[in-house]
Design a protein around this nucleic acid. Structure first.
Lengths: 346, 346
DNA sequence: CTGAAAGCGCTTACAG
DNA sequence: CTGAAAGCGCTTACAG
């Protein structure tokens, strides 16, 4: 907290005194009321500028019992996906006249509780939460109460909060169908953890595509690993323990896919030449890796704007029942999945 | 703005009534005053929990004439460098009990003015600004006045604001010295534009290292290009128009270095084998490119924490004169610069 | 140890 | 068209 400012703040009352008017009239000018005389208005506006008046929205909000802030709590701002999301949220909130109260949790549930508690003291009209892994919905509910609407992004939490999710099922299904269309029949699902809901959903899409094509799912080609490049590279060998090995892999996300591509090269194989790889997310590196990565784009900035719009709608309409929205996923075909299969491999 | 909440807010007065005490006493409990009787305190705390009271910091701040917010205005949140910076700022501000008011400008000067004006109405104790390209210091000064302290990051704006910059000179010097120590004498400076202050500073470090080693600077090896991968790849040929050609290049940044490496391979050369390359920034891709890129790390998250600490210090001590801080730069040696020179090349 | 009163910067009926 | 008065949720001397 700060010590009181040396220079005292310019206040409505100062302007009123200088113009020899009441505070009420100044307030009307500020809020653009048509009630005030044009000449009076001009005089007041000149004086506002002259004294460098800055509106104290907090005081106004207190009096009016409204809030012009929305809290945005992000699990991992150093992930470009969430950074883009945050940029989209902030953009749309600003356009609607709201200010963003930022909190980042670094995937820590404890920090998430602390950050949210602190932000709530600043009286946000609503909250947008991209939950930390392992978030406890009941604890969040206790913190939030029922007064503050929340939109949950990306990871489902249950409760009666609005929810914006990526279309994980459809995305993975698109990737898998693409590989099948290329002639692959032996397709692994590579990376991610079963206990993550997004991983479960992506596997579901993968399974659905296989099933629709009449391809049996091979349990030994369902390979779990932490969703990082390094872990993925380390797990590459698991794809090739048995013969025949898969000819393609749908990866949990781009990081995993890039790790797998590295793992492939250190085994003398090359993605896009003798093995097909797809990712998920379309991180910036995906377009410049060697080879460029076929992946699923979810446009995080657009998702951010969408999240902002959803919470704003909820603020205006608190009574309707919770809304679950699924954002579209788009297949981007690049070289990593374009393999000419030998007769043997297919 | 929101319509008034349906459920009325729980207030100090509600707790006071329920406990049959005055609001003053409740306030003392909230602020942890030792004046209040232990039994009374316990009773109050139970009631606070029971009613789900949440402190209205805005009201308290208004009364106390303090602020517990800091505005953070970022030019490009979709750049991982600035996203990390923002995460570091938020982390440190939260630890100090402040909340972050986020604004992103997308490198637009007009948006920067609008965003800042809006944030200032929320009465931040201070501002951290990573300026949009082409920012107008005088216009910013008009907006800010002299009441609100600001810390400027990365791009110098003049005025009497505190300033945190990266050590471009020292970073480029470290990279150049490293190449010299590897035996190189024909070292180019590749990429960036003369009109960017960071590019000028990096060239200055490069020149200083050459001068200290008694190596003459060759004007034809100072090659400008836009700081993107694509432009850099396209300019690669410019290094080899004359004989002898350089054996190494200090690149303006990592994007340029990665582009140069691509340009080299399409000419049948390989960074780290027959040509040495260094970058600047340590973007995530630098560690996973082929070969991994020797570069200068500036640790944006640590810079964010540092920025937060600097503005907090300024809040506590408004009178001291403006402070310019230069953040350290660290050389990360990786394979792209490790070339065994043939007798001829050296 | 607790309460009554004034006030932070604003807005909003209500008069005139 | 403008002003007087009350009040948003809190804190802070000042009494007692």
């Amino acid at each position: 907290m700060t010590a009181p400012a040396a220079r005292p703040r310019v206040t409505l009352a100062d302007i009123a005194t200088a113009c020899d008017l009441s505070r009420a009239t100044i307030s009307l000018v500020l809020r653009g009321s048509p009630l005030v005389n044009a000449e009076t208005r001009a005089r007041v506006e000149a004086e506002l500028k002259r004294q460098g008046y800055v509106y104290h929205r907090g005081a106004a909000n207190l009096r009016r019992k409204v809030s012009s802030a929305v809290a945005l709590v992000i699990n991992d701002l150093s992930n470009p996906f969430f950074a883009e999301f945050a940029a989209g949220v902030d953009e749309a909130l600003a356009d609607a006249g709201y200010v963003t109260l930022l909190g980042s949790t670094g995937e820590s549930v404890e920090r998430q509780q602390a950050v949210l508690a602190s932000l709530l003291e600043h009286d946000p009209a609503g909250v947008i939460l991209s939950p930390a892994e392992g978030s406890d919905a009941a604890r969040l509910r206790t913190l939030l109460g029922t007064r503050t609407p929340m939109l949950v992004f990306n990871r489902e939490l249950g409760q009666d909060w609005d929810f914006l999710s990526l279309d994980n099922v459809r995305g993975a299904r698109l990737a898998t169908e693409h590989l099948i269309a290329q002639g692959h029949r032996r397709i692994a699902f590579f990376g991610g953890h079963q206990d993550s809901s997004s991983c479960r959903q992506r596997r579901e899409g993968y399974r659905a595509a296989l099933a629709a094509a009449g391809i049996a799912l091979e349990p030994q080609w369902q390979i779990e690993c932490a969703p990082t490049r390094l872990e993925a590279a380390g797990q590459t060998a698991a794809l090739f323990v048995r013969d025949p090995a898969p000819t393609a892999a749908v990866c949990y996300n781009d990081a995993v896919a890039l790790g797998l591509m590295a793992g492939l090269s250190s085994r003398g194989r090359r993605a896009g030449h003798d093995f097909a790889v797809t990712g998920f997310d379309d991180i910036p590196e995906a377009s410049v890796s060697a080879p460029p990565l076929t992946t699923i784009a979810v446009d995080p900035r657009a998702r951010g704007r969408q999240a902002a719009e959803l919470i704003l709608r909820r603020l205006h309409d608190p009574s309707t029942s919770p809304i679950a929205t699924v954002a579209p996923a788009r297949l981007l075909v690049r070289a990593s999945s374009l393999v000419v299969l030998s007769g043997d491999a297919a």
